[in-house]
Computed example of a mutant assay.
Amino acid sequence: MTYVLVAVGGAAGSLVRYSLGKFISGKSKHSFPIGTFIINITGATFLGIVSTIGVSSNIMLLLGDGFLGAYTTFSTFMYEGFNLFQEKETLNAFIYILCSVILGLGGYWVGSKIGNL
């Protein structure tokens, strides 16, 4: 049952990430990877909420490990950050990477505070 919960959550999370990322990126006129940026920050915030509200282990497997694990994407984050460097957009690369890490940590912290209310 563990694997089914993670797989179902993961399938849903990856589909939402792909669709939302394409939608957001389609609206942006900049080379800055705003879709992945927004997805990773919101995912960190939601994980902070889910991990602190005291959900059952099955719900944590479905939402935390499955959905949010697939919704957020470290590999795409690295790929897009590296591409910004390759395209000589060094300032955007540093902004993207630093803000993603700082706001991701901040988002998780805010989510954990919300979850503890």
Rank of each mutant, 00 (worst) to 15 (best):
Pro33Glu: 05
Asn116Pro: 09
Phe74Leu: 06
Phe37Lys: 04
Phe85Gln: 06
Val101Phe: 09
Ala70Tyr: 02
Thr42Trp: 05
Asn92Leu: 13
Ser56Lys: 10
Asn58Ile: 10
Leu61Gly: 08
Pro33Tyr: 05
Ser100Lys: 04
Tyr108Asn: 12
Val16Ile: 11
Tyr96Cys: 13
Met1Lys: 12
Ile102Val: 15
Gly35Gln: 07
Leu103His: 05
Gly111Ala: 15
Phe46Leu: 14
Lys22Asn: 15
Leu20Thr: 03
Ser14Asp: 03
Ile95Cys: 08
Leu15Ser: 11
Phe46Glu: 00
Met78Asn: 11
Asp65Gln: 14
Thr90Lys: 12
Gly69Glu: 00
Ala12Gln: 05
Ala11Trp: 07
Ser75Cys: 11
Ala11Arg: 07
Ile59Ser: 02
Leu5Cys: 07
Ser56Tyr: 06
Ile102Trp: 01
Asn116Cys: 13
Leu68Val: 00
Ile102Lys: 11
Val55Thr: 04
Leu91Lys: 06
Ile53Arg: 03
Val4Met: 04
Gly35Tyr: 05
Gly54Glu: 11
Gly66Cys: 12
Thr2Asn: 12
Leu103Thr: 03
Ser56Pro: 12
Gly111Asn: 08
Ser75Trp: 03
Met78Cys: 15
Ala93Phe: 06
Lys29Leu: 14
Glu80Asp: 13
Ser56Trp: 06
Thr52Gly: 13
Leu68Asn: 01
Met78Phe: 12
Gly54His: 11
Lys29Asn: 15
Ser19Gly: 15
Gly26Glu: 01
Gly26Ser: 09
Ile95Lys: 02
Thr90Ala: 11
Thr45Gln: 05
Leu15Lys: 07
Ile24Cys: 09
Val110Asn: 06
Leu5Asp: 04
Ile24Asn: 06
Gly43Thr: 01
Ile53Gln: 04
Asn58Pro: 06
Met78Pro: 07
Ser112Ile: 01
Thr52Met: 11
Ile102Asp: 03
Ala44Gly: 15
Phe23Asn: 15
Tyr18Ile: 11
Tyr71Gln: 01
Leu20Tyr: 01
Ser57Cys: 13
Val55Cys: 04
Val16Ala: 13
Ile24Ala: 10
Ser56His: 11
Ser75Ala: 13
Asn40Trp: 05
Phe94Gly: 10
Val55Phe: 00
Ser100Asp: 03
Asn83Phe: 14
Ser19Thr: 14
Ile24Glu: 05
Ser14Gln: 02
Ala93Gln: 01
Val110Lys: 05
Gly64Arg: 10
Leu117Ile: 14
Ile24Gln: 09
